Amino acid sequence: MAVFDTSAEVLARNNPTDPLQHALASREADIPRLVTEALAQDRARLVFMPVVAASGGQRIAFHEGLIRLLDENGRLIPAGSFMAEVEETGLGRDIDATALRLGINMLQVNPHLRLAINMSARSIGDGTFRRTLEDGIRRTPRIGERLILEISENSAMLMPEVVIRFMAEFRPHGITFALDDFGAGLTAFRYLRDFLFDMVKIDTIFIRGIHASPDNQVVTEALVSVAHQFGMFAVAEGVETADEAAFLQELGVDCLQGYLFGVPSGVIS
């Protein structure tokens, strides 16, 4: 697999050499067409970001697999360049199903890998997504024990009862469920109790500069306490400095994720 270093993704929107902008200019295509063609021509890849244990020498607990598309010249298109426009459409479901297929393939060829894949609650009713998940479980016994499905807080709250039923259906296969962007949405505590997620990923907005922000400290401490009260692991996203990591360790966060520990890459670290 080719190696993709995506540490510069944050500059993509302001960069005139952004491959998405180049593709749009050269082909006069819109984003949905670009995404459709990339998926149809098998130009989707996963990049991998490590999530480390907050204690115990920062060993890697699992990786998050993040979908990226390639333009016709093989240049990487960051998800931030296209997801906002297509995530609530049928293309969003196609992207979820593709990411799941690629993730399951990686789990099949790497028996020591534990991998998190993002999905929208809307994909629960998508036939291709469900078949991909069921086929992967059937072909590879116990693969679910190494698969983590991440559902964002806002997405989960769109259809909480559907998410709860989906989790109850697939949890017996060993699948772990994570509530992504925890704290940024509107999760009601009564649903949080009913969801029974295995872990939460605390939103980046509360993590950046937390060592110097009393407001972020109070909010994050409360989120960690809520997670632990409901028996869930707490993962801090967007950790970029040693000061942030040290404060989060003292706060009792279970795992850390961010550029401090590794940028998204096409190889498993």
Rank of each mutant, 00 (worst) to 15 (best):
E150V: 03
R122S: 15
E72M: 08
V52T: 11
F166A: 13
G174N: 02
E169H: 09
S155Y: 01
R139E: 08
R171P: 07
G103N: 15
R131M: 14
I104T: 12
R122M: 13
G65T: 09
T176A: 15
F82R: 06
D96V: 00
L133H: 05
L149S: 04
E64I: 02
R68D: 03
M157C: 02
N105A: 14
P160G: 07
A116S: 15
R68V: 10
E37L: 15
V47C: 06
S155Q: 04
L113T: 02
R138L: 02
E88P: 01
D94C: 15
I124C: 11
E64F: 07
T128N: 06
R75F: 10
V52H: 03
A156E: 10
R130Q: 15
G56K: 03
R68A: 09
E85C: 10
N154K: 13
A38Q: 02
E85P: 00
E153V: 12
F166D: 04
I60W: 00
R138T: 07
T89I: 09
R171D: 00
P50H: 04
I117H: 11
G90A: 04
M159D: 01
G90R: 07
L107A: 01
R122V: 14
I117M: 04
M83Q: 07
I148G: 12
L46V: 06
G57K: 01
I164E: 10
D94W: 01
L133V: 07
L149N: 11
A44W: 01
L115K: 06
E145A: 05
E169N: 13
A54N: 00
T98V: 13
A99V: 11
I77T: 15
I117F: 05
L69Y: 05
H112S: 05
R114W: 09
T176Y: 07
F129A: 00
F166Y: 02
H173M: 11
G127N: 02
S123H: 05
H63E: 11
L66P: 02
G56F: 00
V163S: 15
R142Y: 14
